[in-house]
Amino acid sequence: MEFEPRIVGFLCNWCAYSGADLAGTSRIQYPPNIRVIRLMCTGALDPIYVLRAFLEGADGILIAGCHPGDCHYLNGNYKARRRVAILKEILKELGLEEDRVWLRWISASEGQRFADTVKEMVEYLKAKGPSPMKNPIL
């Protein structure tokens, strides 16, 4: 059986979540590999959630928020950007694969972009294989 990556999507309520809704409303088809958690803002994403998702078995994490300058809460997306940059550094330091964490800006009107991002990510992770963080020895 072909490997089907499991993606956890942390989507901002004001933009990417609505973008994902729009993809559905427009009947744009994308692979069902993503599971969505709605956040009020990407700036409210605690990196711990990402790490926990990896430990629980996620193969990839998509964090999607408002385009720079468009944050509903003024600057939450910039906070997310810095936080994700640091998270990726830490993952790299630990020898884990930082390219499994994707941060993308997807507005409420970008249904196609959301679908394309999921498609792209699924293909990327399929080529990469399952996450080594799955089933860690604890």
């Binding site: 809704d21 993809a23 559905g24 088809q29 069902p32 679908a115």
Partner: peptide, 14 residues
Amino acid sequence: ANIREQVSWPHQNY
């Protein structure tokens, strides 16, 4: 639980 816009509509063939 959003199972229309984010489940049934974008995954019609699955």
